[in-house]
Protein backbone atom coordinates (compact mmCIF):
# COMPACT_ATOMS: atom_id res chain seq x y z
CA UNK A 1 0.00 0.00 0.00
CA UNK A 2 2.88 2.36 0.85
CA UNK A 3 4.26 1.80 -2.62
CA UNK A 4 0.95 2.53 -4.34
CA UNK A 5 0.37 5.73 -2.33
CA UNK A 6 3.93 6.88 -3.07
CA UNK A 7 3.49 6.16 -6.79
CA UNK A 8 0.25 8.17 -6.92
CA UNK A 9 1.85 11.02 -4.95
CA UNK A 10 4.79 11.01 -7.39
CA UNK A 11 2.47 11.10 -10.41
CA UNK A 12 0.46 14.01 -8.98
CA UNK A 13 3.65 15.83 -8.00
CA UNK A 14 5.10 15.49 -11.51
CA UNK A 15 1.80 16.47 -13.09
CA UNK A 16 1.81 19.58 -10.91
CA UNK A 17 5.33 20.45 -12.07
CA UNK A 18 4.35 20.06 -15.72
CA UNK A 19 0.98 21.86 -15.49
CA UNK A 20 2.51 24.75 -13.55
CA UNK A 21 5.35 25.23 -16.04
CA UNK A 22 8.02 24.50 -13.42
CA UNK A 23 9.33 21.64 -15.56
CA UNK A 24 10.47 24.21 -18.13
CA UNK A 25 13.91 25.54 -17.08
CA UNK A 26 13.43 28.68 -19.22
CA UNK A 27 10.37 29.60 -17.22
CA UNK A 28 12.25 29.08 -13.97
CA UNK A 29 15.18 31.21 -15.17
CA UNK A 30 12.77 33.97 -16.22
CA UNK A 31 11.31 33.95 -12.71
CA UNK A 32 14.79 34.30 -11.27
CA UNK A 33 15.66 37.06 -13.76
CA UNK A 34 13.97 39.88 -11.86
CA UNK A 35 15.87 42.58 -13.74
CA UNK A 36 15.29 41.01 -17.16
CA UNK A 37 12.55 38.87 -18.74
CA UNK A 38 10.78 38.41 -15.39
CA UNK A 39 7.93 35.85 -15.34
CA UNK A 40 6.16 35.86 -11.97
CA UNK A 41 4.40 32.52 -12.57
CA UNK A 42 6.59 30.64 -10.09
CA UNK A 43 5.23 32.76 -7.27
CA UNK A 44 1.80 31.35 -8.08
CA UNK A 45 3.18 27.80 -8.05
CA UNK A 46 4.56 28.44 -4.57
CA UNK A 47 1.30 30.06 -3.46
CA UNK A 48 -0.83 27.15 -4.68
CA UNK A 49 1.50 24.51 -3.26
CA UNK A 50 1.96 26.14 0.13
CA UNK A 51 -1.75 26.95 0.49
CA UNK A 52 -2.87 23.35 -0.15
CA UNK A 53 -0.10 21.72 1.88
CA UNK A 54 -0.51 24.16 4.78
CA UNK A 55 -4.26 23.44 5.02
CA UNK A 56 -3.85 19.73 4.24
CA UNK A 57 -1.09 19.22 6.80
CA UNK A 58 -3.33 20.80 9.45
CA UNK A 59 -6.02 18.21 8.71
CA UNK A 60 -3.69 15.25 8.35
CA UNK A 61 -1.45 15.93 11.36
CA UNK A 62 -4.52 15.89 13.60
CA UNK A 63 -4.73 12.11 13.05
CA UNK A 64 -2.96 9.81 15.54
CA UNK A 65 -0.70 8.38 12.81
CA UNK A 66 -0.40 8.25 9.00
CA UNK A 67 -2.81 5.86 7.26
CA UNK A 68 -0.11 3.40 6.22
CA UNK A 69 2.75 4.10 8.63
CA UNK A 70 3.44 4.17 12.36
CA UNK A 71 4.18 7.82 13.06
CA UNK A 72 4.53 11.35 11.73
CA UNK A 73 7.98 12.92 11.52
CA UNK A 74 9.01 15.01 14.52
CA UNK A 75 8.78 18.78 14.30
CA UNK A 76 11.71 20.46 12.54
CA UNK A 77 14.38 21.44 15.06
CA UNK A 78 14.77 25.03 13.93
CA UNK A 79 18.52 24.73 14.19
CA UNK A 80 20.12 27.04 11.63
CA UNK A 81 23.73 25.97 11.11
CA UNK A 82 26.43 26.55 8.53
CA UNK A 83 25.52 23.35 6.65
CA UNK A 84 21.99 24.63 5.99
CA UNK A 85 23.22 28.03 4.79
CA UNK A 86 26.15 26.71 2.76
CA UNK A 87 24.02 23.96 1.20
CA UNK A 88 21.23 26.37 0.24
CA UNK A 89 23.79 28.82 -1.17
CA UNK A 90 25.43 26.14 -3.34
CA UNK A 91 22.07 24.75 -4.45
CA UNK A 92 20.94 28.25 -5.49
CA UNK A 93 23.99 28.73 -7.72
CA UNK A 94 23.37 25.40 -9.46
CA UNK A 95 19.66 26.15 -9.82
CA UNK A 96 20.37 29.56 -11.33
CA UNK A 97 22.97 28.21 -13.78
CA UNK A 98 20.53 26.24 -15.96
CA UNK A 99 17.12 26.42 -14.26
CA UNK A 100 16.87 22.82 -13.05
CA UNK A 101 16.11 21.80 -9.48
CA UNK A 102 15.75 18.11 -8.50
CA UNK A 103 11.99 17.61 -9.09
CA UNK A 104 11.70 19.21 -12.53
CA UNK A 105 14.97 17.60 -13.65
CA UNK A 106 13.63 14.11 -12.85
CA UNK A 107 10.20 14.92 -14.31
CA UNK A 108 11.78 15.90 -17.61
CA UNK A 109 14.17 12.98 -18.20
CA UNK A 110 11.67 11.34 -20.57
CA UNK A 111 11.19 14.40 -22.81
CA UNK A 112 14.10 16.68 -21.95
CA UNK A 113 16.62 14.92 -24.18
CA UNK A 114 20.30 14.58 -23.43
CA UNK A 115 20.45 17.83 -21.40
CA UNK A 116 18.10 16.52 -18.71
CA UNK A 117 19.96 13.19 -18.57
CA UNK A 118 23.37 14.83 -18.24
CA UNK A 119 22.07 17.10 -15.47
CA UNK A 120 20.46 14.22 -13.54
CA UNK A 121 23.63 12.09 -13.73
CA UNK A 122 25.76 15.00 -12.47
CA UNK A 123 23.19 15.64 -9.72
CA UNK A 124 23.43 12.02 -8.55
CA UNK A 125 27.22 12.28 -8.44
CA UNK A 126 26.97 15.55 -6.46
CA UNK A 127 24.61 13.84 -4.03
CA UNK A 128 26.93 10.89 -3.50
CA UNK A 129 29.93 13.17 -3.01
CA UNK A 130 27.98 15.12 -0.37
CA UNK A 131 27.09 11.90 1.46
CA UNK A 132 30.75 10.88 1.50
CA UNK A 133 31.92 14.32 2.63
CA UNK A 134 29.27 14.36 5.38
CA UNK A 135 30.60 11.12 6.73
CA UNK A 136 34.06 12.61 7.09
CA UNK A 137 32.99 15.98 8.55
Amino acid sequence: MQVLVALIAGLIFGLGLVVSGMSNPSKVLNFLDIFGSFDASLLFVMAGAVLISFLGYRLVLRQPHPLFAKEFPSCPSGLIDWRLILGALIFGVGWGLVGFCPGPALASVTFGGLSALVFVCAMLIGLMVAKLVSRVL
Binding site: A6, F13, S20, V45, I52, L61, H65, A69, P73
Partner: peptide, 20 residues
Protein backbone atom coordinates in the same frame (compact mmCIF):
# COMPACT_ATOMS: atom_id res chain seq x y z
CA UNK B 1 0.78 27.78 -12.27
CA UNK B 2 -1.52 28.13 -9.28
CA UNK B 3 -3.37 24.96 -10.30
CA UNK B 4 -0.11 23.04 -10.81
CA UNK B 5 1.14 24.32 -7.47
CA UNK B 6 -2.06 23.04 -5.89
CA UNK B 7 -1.34 19.58 -7.31
CA UNK B 8 2.16 19.68 -5.81
CA UNK B 9 0.59 20.62 -2.47
CA UNK B 10 -1.94 17.80 -2.80
CA UNK B 11 0.88 15.34 -3.42
CA UNK B 12 2.65 16.57 -0.29
CA UNK B 13 -0.54 16.07 1.75
CA UNK B 14 -1.06 12.54 0.36
CA UNK B 15 2.51 11.56 1.20
CA UNK B 16 2.24 12.98 4.72
CA UNK B 17 -1.20 11.53 5.38
CA UNK B 18 -0.39 8.15 3.90
CA UNK B 19 3.25 7.56 4.82
CA UNK B 20 4.15 10.36 7.22
Amino acid sequence: SFLGGGLIGLSAVILMGGLG
